[in-house]
């Protein structure tokens, strides 16, 4: 099961990197989403996979009676998802603002902050 997930992560990273290399900012954003979910899966796999044993302690017990799934990676993934969600929403808003203000989402045409040397900057 772990090795299957690792393969999935590999494919997601490859696809994410491919998309992120595009000049189009929307493609970049989609690549980022893939990559960020791949990172979450890495943490998930790192916590070892345990099927269908939620880490809940039965009533009257102090500790789980049977080996249960590792809850810590799930808590970390939840945190990472929350943060990733905020960052992606922000980046999307930024791309929208860019499209409105600069009329392009092609990063090759964004030369305002770094004008090419022949544009009479000096």
């Amino acid at each position: 099961m772990e090795s299957a997930l690792v393969l999935v992560i590999g494919v997601m990273v490859a696809a994410g990197v491919y998309l992120m290399l595009a000049a189009n900012l929307l493609c970049y954003l989609f690549g980022l989403i893939l990559l960020s979910n791949a990172a979450n899966l890495v943490i998930f796999v790192a916590g070892r996979l345990t099927r269908a044993v939620p880490p809940l302690i039965p009533k009257g017990q102090e500790a789980p009676v049977v080996p249960v799934a590792n809850a810590l990676p799930q808590a970390m993934i939840l945190t990472a998802i929350v943060i990733g969600f905020g960052l992606l929403a922000f980046t999307l808003a930024l791309v929208v603002a860019c499209y409105r203000e600069l009329d392009t989402i092609d990063s090759d045409h964004m030369r305002l902050a770094e004008p090419p040397p022949d544009s009479g900057e000096h």
């Binding site: 905020g86 929403a89 922000f90 999307l92 808003a93 929208v96």
Partner: peptide, 10 residues
């Protein structure tokens, strides 16, 4: 608040 702020802005 944060989600709605974002949504309203977009």
């Amino acid at each position: 608040g944060a989600v709605l702020a974002l949504f309203f802005t977009i």
